[in-house]
Design a protein around this nucleic acid. Structure first.
Length: 416
RNA sequence: GUGGGCGUAGCUCAGCUGGUAGAGCUCCUGGUUGUGGUCCAGGCGGUCGCCGGUUCGAAUCCGGUCGCUCACCCCA
């Protein structure tokens, strides 16, 4: 049997309701704030991600689906949405639009990771980006909008963590300082932390062993090394969040695996999720547009995992689809019956009814049973070109009438 | 990529001290001359994830592989 590829899954009819709910909430919340929807290609030049996301990141180094397009170009299935949106911004000269440009998307992304709950190889993200606004209001607004989306979806046990990365130069200097500090105290660190000093010194803040924790308690924090303007920006963002009544915690250990972040960084987690606790997050990327070949333009955005939102949100029973009318034929061989039934269904739909034609050729008894399962309000039993019976499934009353009069009878509404 | 758990009909599962597969639900048909929801009867449906090994014989034991899942890692 051919199965869906590892880490992918089918979105079956039963799954559509929850996703449509998410989509409509996103549409409502973001459109109200002036965000327009955008959809970029599912694949892009590999170079876009190498330059945008960062060549040293895990995503680029080992998680991209890259392939040759046959013409010597290297393409990659998009692993994230920010770089493509920025590419589109530059390519379409959106800097000429009234600033800032506010965009949102709900799209599939691809990462060659080992799948587990809430982590797939093809996954969906809803995301929002603000390009061309440097002020802290943009940061705070985006965070609030994501909080509202999560709340609207009923995502439980959420926590917001906040940090500021400052500028890349600051971060580089800080990283060197931290690495040096860790080396100086390496004898007190756990073996794993020690082994990862060069690879990812920030991880040491998350360690649980007492030795490492003691060392880290006195370790230098990036937040204390921020340049004045960056620290001021961060303080302003926090003031706005405080004023909005949004609860958050400052987490100097917050790290994201994308190189393009500057200044504000945030992440929402949910305790309903297990190890993949992040439901959504993002940050500011003031250097990205320029790095991709555009004019220096500030930007900020977030992305949230659709699967994770749905996992952390309460399951909602699927709403039954409405069926106003099922059209069946009493005797398939009766002269003109099938054509008449076909026409009744068409006419009903043109009149705005949800009308299904019995398509399998099952017996009348089975057709009625089928109508019952569908929850059909009426069944039209067509005898021939002229004669038919309209049955109200609620009570079982029925009456004979011309096939051409069926729709009008239903629209009249009423009792038969 | 690494490690643990799991993999039997569409779904939920039983069967596993080895002897060539079962239940419930779903679906389909019928229950006396066209009419549903209850009930009754019958039927469709599985190369027991796949490949190989042990054995006279394997869904049941062993190995490999694929997939799911949990964790590491990383991220949404």
């Amino acid at each position: 049997m051919i199965q869906a590829p590892k880490g992918t899954y089918d979105l079956l009819p039963a799954d559509q309701g929850a996703r449509q709910l998410l989509e409509s909430h996103a549409q409502r919340i973001l459109a109200a704030a002036g965000y327009s929807r955008i959809e970029t290609p599912a694949f892009e030049s590999t170079e876009l991600f190498a330059r945008g996301v960062g060549a040293a990141t895990d995503i680029v180094q080992k998680e991209m689906y890259s392939f040759d397009d046959g013409g010597g170009r290297s393409l990659t299935l998009r692993p994230e949405g920010t770089a493509p949106v920025c590419r589109a911004y530059i390519e379409h000269g959106m800097h000429k639009l009234p600033a800032p440009v506010k965009l949102w998307y709900l799209s599939a992304f691809f990462r060659a990771e080992n799948p587990q709950r809430g982590r797939h190889r093809q996954f969906w993200q809803v995301g929002a980006e603000v390009i061309g606004a440097a002020g802290p209001e943009a940061d705070a607004e985006l965070i609030v909008l994501l909080a509202e989306l999560l709340e609207a979806m009923g995502v439980s046990g959420t926590r917001l963590r906040l940090a500021s990365l400052g500028q890349p130069e600051t971060r580089g200097a800080y990283r060197a300082e931290l690495t040096e500090y860790l080396h100086a105290h390496s004898e007190s660190l756990s073996a794993e932390v020690r082994a990862r000093i060069e690879l990812n010194p920030m991880r040491a803040f998350d360690a649980s062993d007492p030795g490492t924790r003691a060392v880290m308690a006195a370790a230098p924090k990036l937040i204390d090394r921020l340049a004045e303007e960056d620290a001021g920006h961060f303080a302003a963002v926090r003031e706005l969040l405080d004023a909005a009544g949004l609860r958050y915690e400052i987490d100097p250990t917050l790290v994201r695996g994308l190189d393009y972040y500057t200044r504000t960084l945030f992440e929402f987690t949910s305790d309903a999720l297990g190890a993949q606790s992040g439901v959504g997050g993002g940050g500011r990327y003031d250097r990205l547009i320029e790095q991709l070949g555009g004019q220096p333009t500030p930007g900020i955005g977030w992305a949230a995992g659709v699967e994770r939102i749905l996992l952390a949100a309460p399951a909602r029973p699927r709403a039954a689809e409405v069926v106003d009318l099922l059209v069946a034929v009493a005797d398939r061989d009766a002269h003109g019956a099938r054509a008449a039934a076909f026409e009744v269904a068409r006419e009903a739909r043109r009149a705005g009814l949800a009308a299904q034609l019995e398509l399998t050729g099952r017996s009348l008894k089975s057709a009625l049973k089928h109508a019952d399962r569908l929850g059909a309000r009426y069944v039209a039993i067509v005898n021939d070109a002229e004669q038919s019976v309209l049955r109200d499934m609620t009570g079982g009353e029925q009456r004979e009438l011309a096939a051409g009069a069926v729709v009008a009878a239903i629209l009249r509404g009423s009792r038969l």
